[in-house]
């Protein structure tokens, strides 16, 4: 491949990402909940109620967990609901008829999730630091941001699996059904140690729990399991979810979807 062709290809990826970003930014049904909900939740539960809730250190705990929540939103909705709707409306077919590589479409969505996630994370960090007096070592601020943003990998895989298996409008409902209970059961709102033992066991099966534990480890507020365990579970779950998604696309047959917008069979 010549340098010119490589540059051309990079431009395609960059443009697809940029237009994906612009598209969701102009879509209030996506942008408002994914950007504003985590910030408003953190402002209310972490900053206003914060130190008076389950612990005086709650603002610091929630700083990490609401950031995970903030990255989970765009990842799940971009892939889960977004992909299903674009497939049903025929946009996906349209893109497949262009010479653009399929990977560009997927990477654009990942980039969009990172961009939105980063905006939410920064917002929560600023609220925590200046509203709730959260102080961390500099390495902790950076490591926390990095670990939390790495959450796009398992969450996008989960979104992709949901998107592959559900139709347009149903995908929104299904994504919400995954999103909110998982956030709660994974300890993103309050620590799971407050739950009954059976519910605590459920958390061990959820990617958001392991993602949150990795984030909490940086600020010494995790539950004491090993980093290796969390990374292993997240890795295995991500691969399994990608396989589920691939199987879903094959079953639905992306080619067949293409013929009649609105149909999936």
């Amino acid at each position: 491949m010549t340098a010119a062709r490589r540059a051309h290809r990079a431009r395609i990826y960059a443009l697809e990402a940029w237009y994906q970003f612009l598209m969701v930014l102009r879509e209030p049904a996506f942008a408002i909940p994914t950007l504003l909900f985590p910030l408003i939740f953190y402002l209310f539960f972490g900053v206003v109620l914060g130190a008076g809730s389950f612990s005086v250190a709650a603002p610091t705990y929630m700083l990490a967990t609401y950031s995970v929540f903030g990255v989970m939103g765009p990842s799940l909705f971009g892939f889960g609901a977004g992909l299903a709707m674009e497939r049903d409306s025929g946009v996906l077919l349209l893109k497949r008829t262009t010479p653009m590589p399929a990977a560009a479409y997927l990477l654009a969505k990942v980039a969009m999730a990172i961009a939105f996630g980063a905006a939410v994370v920064l917002g929560i960090f600023l609220l925590g630091a200046h509203g709730a007096g959260v102080v961390l070592y500099r390495w902790q601020w950076f490591a926390l941001a990095g670990v939390v943003l790495a959450g796009v990998i398992p969450f996008c895989a989960l979104g992709l699996a949901v998107g592959a298996w559900s139709r347009g409008r149903a995908a929104v409902a299904i994504t919400n059904l995954v999103f909110l209970p998982m956030a709660m059961l994974s300890g993103l709102w309050i620590p799971i140690t407050i739950f009954p033992a059976a519910l605590q066991d459920v958390a061990n099966a959820l990617p958001a729990y392991h993602q949150a534990q990795l984030a909490l480890k940086i600020i010494d507020m995790d539950g004491g399991q090993t980093t290796l365990l969390h990374i292993s579970v997240l890795g295995v779950q991500s691969l399994a979810l990608l396989a589920v998604a691939a199987f879903g696309f094959r079953r639905a047959g992306t080619g067949a979807v293409s013929i009649r917008p609105g149909g999936t069979s």
């Binding site: 960059a14 961009a115 980063a118 920064l122 960090f125 600023l126 630091a129 959260v134 102080v135 961390l136 070592y137 500099r138 601020w141 950076f142 941001a145």
Partner: peptide, 18 residues
């Protein structure tokens, strides 16, 4: 992209430390 990433890192660097 470069400006956004730079801004993000710069903003993180302003956060309070002990």
């Amino acid at each position: 992209l470069a400006v956004a990433a730079g801004g993000f890192i710069g903003a993180l660097a302003t956060l309070p430390v002990p």
